[in-house]
Computed example of a mutant assay.
Amino acid sequence: MKIEGSYKSVGNAGDVKARGTRESAAKPSADAGSKVDVSPLASRLQQLEGTLAGVPEVDAAKVSELKQAISDGRFRVNPEKVADGLIESVRQMLQSQPRQA
């Protein structure tokens, strides 16, 4: 099966470059004095992002405490709490799925 020659040429790279240059020349450029208004919600989100940036993702003190408890043999798993957590996560997962008829 020969595929060569069965396609049509849409131009060469020079045409595309020239067209791109004309289009960019036609677009208005942003002035140095342009002003952008941000909605109150967007402004609040920016504030929250700044606040969260300073919060560590991991509580190093808690991790250290748990490591020490495991090393000392004081760490105990509460199976009821683990089971409750698993059941709750399954409930949330089932609630988030669309209902089927």
Score class of each variant (00 low, 15 high):
44 R>M: 05
1 M>F: 07
39 S>I: 06
25 A>L: 10
69 A>N: 08
37 D>F: 12
73 G>E: 05
41 L>I: 03
20 G>L: 11
66 L>T: 00
14 G>K: 04
76 R>P: 00
55 V>L: 14
10 V>C: 07
78 N>H: 03
17 K>Y: 07
100 Q>I: 11
5 G>I: 00
46 Q>V: 06
33 G>F: 02
68 Q>T: 14
25 A>C: 02
41 L>S: 13
73 G>T: 05
25 A>W: 00
89 S>I: 07
95 Q>F: 10
23 E>W: 08
75 F>K: 07
21 T>P: 07
52 L>Q: 06
15 D>N: 10
14 G>C: 02
96 S>D: 14
57 E>I: 03
89 S>Y: 13
77 V>Y: 04
49 E>Q: 15
5 G>D: 00
75 F>W: 03
23 E>K: 08
19 R>Y: 10
41 L>E: 14
3 I>M: 13
20 G>Q: 14
56 P>K: 12
65 E>W: 01
61 A>M: 02
38 V>P: 12
70 I>K: 11
92 Q>T: 07
13 A>C: 03
58 V>E: 15
52 L>F: 05
90 V>H: 08
47 Q>F: 02
49 E>T: 06
93 M>L: 11
55 V>Q: 13
53 A>K: 14
13 A>M: 06
82 V>E: 01
58 V>Y: 06
71 S>Q: 12
59 D>K: 03
93 M>C: 05
46 Q>K: 10
16 V>G: 08
11 G>Y: 08
25 A>R: 05
67 K>N: 12
51 T>M: 10
65 E>L: 04
94 L>W: 09
6 S>Y: 02
68 Q>R: 03
89 S>V: 07
20 G>T: 12
47 Q>C: 01
14 G>S: 09
91 R>D: 11
81 K>W: 03
26 A>F: 02
82 V>W: 00
67 K>T: 05
25 A>K: 10
63 V>N: 04
68 Q>K: 12
68 Q>E: 12
63 V>R: 03
76 R>I: 14
60 A>P: 06
3 I>H: 12
63 V>E: 09
24 S>H: 13
62 K>L: 14
99 R>Y: 07
91 R>F: 05
87 I>A: 10
94 L>M: 10
38 V>A: 09
72 D>L: 08
86 L>E: 06
74 R>C: 01
20 G>S: 09
31 D>T: 11
35 K>M: 09
63 V>H: 03
80 E>I: 09
18 A>N: 01
29 S>R: 13
55 V>K: 15
83 A>K: 15
32 A>D: 11
76 R>M: 10
28 P>Y: 00
26 A>M: 13
37 D>M: 12
13 A>T: 09
66 L>P: 04
15 D>K: 14
30 A>M: 12
74 R>W: 01
54 G>I: 06
78 N>M: 08
18 A>K: 07
4 E>G: 11
12 N>M: 09
5 G>C: 00
30 A>T: 13
64 S>L: 03
41 L>G: 06
60 A>Y: 05
42 A>F: 01
69 A>R: 06
49 E>C: 04
